[in-house]
Nucleic acid binder design. Sequence first.
DNA 1: CAGAAACCCACATACGTATTCAGACATTCT
DNA 2: AGAATGTCTGAATACGTATGTGGGTTTCTG
Lengths: 341, 341
Amino acid sequence: MSRKPTSFDIAQLAGVSQPTVSRALSGSNTVSEQTRKRIEAIAQQLNYTVDKNASSLRKRETNTLALLFYEDPTPDETGINPFFLSMLGSIVRTCSLRGYDLLISMQHMASNWHVEFEESRKADGIILLGHGDFEPYRAKLDQLMEQGTHFVRWGHVNERSLGTVIGCDNFRGGYDATQHLISHGRRRIVFLGHASEHYPEFFDRYRGFCEAQRSAGIKVVETRQADAIITEQSGHDVVNALMARGVKFDAIFAASDMIAIGAMRALSDHGLDVPNDIAIVGFDDLPAASMTSPPLTTIQQDFSKAGEMLVDALIRQIRNEDTKTTALPAKLIVRKSCGAH
Amino acid sequence: MSRKPTSFDIAQLAGVSQPTVSRALSGSNTVSEQTRKRIEAIAQQLNYTVDKNASSLRKRETNTLALLFYEDPTPDETGINPFFLSMLGSIVRTCSLRGYDLLISMQHMASNWHVEFEESRKADGIILLGHGDFEPYRAKLDQLMEQGTHFVRWGHVNERSLGTVIGCDNFRGGYDATQHLISHGRRRIVFLGHASEHYPEFFDRYRGFCEAQRSAGIKVVETRQADAIITEQSGHDVVNALMARGVKFDAIFAASDMIAIGAMRALSDHGLDVPNDIAIVGFDDLPAASMTSPPLTTIQQDFSKAGEMLVDALIRQIRNEDTKTTALPAKLIVRKSCGAH
DNA sequence: CAGAAACCCACATACGTATTCAGACATTCT
DNA sequence: AGAATGTCTGAATACGTATGTGGGTTTCTG
């Protein structure tokens, strides 16, 4: 017999009916210990595995979670946002520990994954990475809510967030980073990163940045903020632009490590020393942060915890248990780029 | 009707039978243009999606590929090998372009995924990352072959490789890197990385390293090789060990960028300048390579191409077309760590 | 106008599992 | 001993789709 064995095959060999095989292997207690042993032995010997599709069809659940990246519309960049990549490991691991399979997909705005994944019963729920709750994402999130699709997302934590969100305490992180620079004597700090509603997480970091300065009696100057997105190149360019504009500063708080790394390269090109001339603090604690020279002081996001919480929250939601939007603490990691000691 | 619509629902509304709906939506030409339009309109309106499980069950194919990482047995390291992460993006994208879903799993040696994935019809084929064809992997690969499971893997390319392998021309890469250092006047080059059968890719790079030296009339000295695995810490430690042993060298060829980055940190700790005191060339061209200071000269592996080839080879195999084991070219990327200008 | 061909479509069925229901048998109770 | 209880198992069926087969209508051909 070369085809894949079915529960009928096992049943025949064990001299029982197919339903009994199904019950025995799914751990039902309505089957005698003796026959169960026999069935298990035969199943093992034939390398029998439950057919996932038939099982899912019958049970109406797939035991699979879907992970959806939002693909940035930069056709030349082939990579995934390094920040999300860092979270991937713990998501994969947690799914595995919880007995779920993980389906991964990268989507662009045009596609309508929101009807695809749960509707076609590929997955029991969806984890969203990179989908904010402002336009043009908002409409899609609304539709997910309406459909009753189970989903959680990583993002900006807010009182009126749509659905369940796991995020980071960005305000506090921004505050702590800035406070740290101030406490080491820096007074003219620039913020590198967008500061608008369309980048709600960066915006919170920026607000923390402003608040820390106010607390220290430093006047917040608008010219000390410059838009940047989460790429090394962007960080590099924005520093050059600042210097071209003649902005004076003695420290940088970058809204992401990628930006910080690009900034360090630009400073190096200008012959400036980090941290003596310019101190830098980043955000995220990407793997790359500890590899720069000098190593980057940064605000750590706990990726491992984040992935675990996303998966667990989604599973709770699938089981119709209550879930709550949560902000994880942000933690200052002092290395050398900030000039402490 | 709150439950998910089925093809029967569509059929009823369109006044046709269920099979006609199935044929209309799957683009069969045995259904009239007129009824097809009608059916499509209704399907669209109801947000109808083909049930993946029922379809897969009936068609006996899942339209899904599985990606299996081998998890290094370091329980504290929560991350995935950065090298594989770099490939992930293009694998995800290529799957999407080819119309396949991607199932991701991280496995440890103990588990027997080899019967799980294709046998339980979760996927039509498997992409393996991090599975060499030496023990203890070999037994599992043998079993996959025997089962007739479709799989491809990234790894060491060899005449007698088991199954279809996509890899990199490691020998040539090692040769070119070393040759480059020699051509810039370096004579005492150390190789950082394992040089044994258990690390076949590193071993090929090492053989290229040796060959380049012989071609240049430099005597290959065994003390100028030191074992290291693909982590930053390992690179750091091994350089310290070399210096403690009093080994003299003026250049480093690291078998991976991670090792190179760790090595640079160690050199910096010792007050040595890169590239003036010690020139360095890495391997892989990880994203981090361009962010170090000085930026790392390295041998580039084309991750984008690699992911694409893995996916395409697997799909060909699933379609019973012939596939061939392939080595991709390795390309020297000159930055600043090697001291060329 | 008869017969052939072409075209559409419905009927029946299979994919492999999980669950409901009821029956068989053994055991215990009165 | 007869009834009641409990334990285990089999028969029947549903999940939603895809496909082989055959029937009915229309169009074409001679």
